[in-house]
């Protein structure tokens, strides 16, 4: 079973997505979708991704709510900076952030969160020293940004990816 269909959930999801995109459940579409989903699951298996270990799935919803709230807030903050003139009043800069999170999936999620929220961008992760270089558009207090990222997201991600 594992050999023929390495990722059964992914297969079902892709087939369902294909049928929904076609907006029809005809035999031809089911066959074509199954062939494409079959090929895609085998391509995925060829990449040999690491399976992430998720310790606390219940915390994911909290993370999503937190990220949504932060995205709305930082959208408004960045929009205000841009409309206020773009140069002058705000001061941007680089921050070197020490991290305790080592899990690869957790780091990937954290980097996407940091970059997707306007006003902060993840630039470069250093696996040796376990630090990350972050650029911040409105750098008033460096320590405050470090605390925000570490306490709001890293603590939660450390719980999720045990």
């Amino acid at each position: 079973m594992k050999r023929v269909l390495p990722y059964p959930l992914l297969f079902a999801g892709l087939l369902l997505m294909w049928l929904l995109l076609q907006q029809s459940f005809g035999l031809g579409h089911i066959l074509l979708g199954a062939v494409i989903a079959f090929g895609a699951t085998h391509a995925m298996a060829a990449l040999q991704p690491e399976r992430p270990t998720i310790g606390r799935p219940d915390k994911i919803i909290r993370l999503i709510v937190l990220v949504l709230a932060d995205i709305i807030r930082s959208n408004l903050a960045v929009a205000r900076i841009i409309l206020a003139g773009g140069r002058g009043e705000h001061k941007s800069g680089f921050i070197l952030l020490p991290l305790e999170l080592r899990d690869k999936s957790g780091l990937a999620v954290l980097s996407c969160i940091v970059t997707a929220t306007p006003g902060s961008a993840w630039l470069e992760y250093d696996p040796v020293g376990s630090t990350v270089l972050v650029h911040v558009l409105d750098l008033i207090d460096e320590q405050e940004w470090i605390d925000t990222i570490k306490h709001r997201y890293e603590a939660l991600l450390l719980e999720i990816f045990q």
Binding site: V78, I81, S92, T117, S120, H135
Partner: peptide, 29 residues
Amino acid sequence: FLTLVGSIGLARLSSFYERIHAPTLGSSL
């Protein structure tokens, strides 16, 4: 409107690392 503000930011902000924040306005909200 948010996308427009983001693109204006792209045109107005003064350095590359500042400009990298602007498109996320359009791509998120």
